[in-house]
């Protein structure tokens, strides 16, 4: 089982967390066209490589995290609290 280096709790098993998928900026609601909004809803980079994604430490500190993970090796490059600049 992979481990997520929670910035609050330390290394923890991934089954304590929920993946919330790729981190994407929310378009401006007032100006978003359907194409822009639906790209936000549905499209993904889905790289075979480093991805920036959200994880929620559901069974731990209950903090939302932003994690950089390699999608082939599952190696984790960084993890920080959501909403905090990297």
């Amino acid at each position: 089982m992979i481990q997520i280096p929670c910035p609050y709790c330390g290394l923890r098993n991934a089954n304590e967390f929920a993946s919330t998928g790729e981190v994407k900026p929310r378009p401006d609601v007032a100006t978003a066209t359907p194409a822009v909004w639906r790209a936000y809803l549905y499209d993904h980079r889905n790289p075979e490589g480093l991805v920036t994604e959200g994880w929620y430490h559901r069974a731990g500190c209950r903090k939302f995290l932003v994690v950089e993970r390699h999608t082939q090796t599952n190696e984790i490059r960084s993890a920080r609290p959501a909403g905090v600049a990297s």
Binding site: C9, N13, N15, E16, R58, A59, G60, C61, R62
Partner: peptide, 11 residues
Amino acid sequence: ALRSLVAGVAT
């Protein structure tokens, strides 16, 4: 003190 899963429940 910590919080983790115990028998599948957040504890």
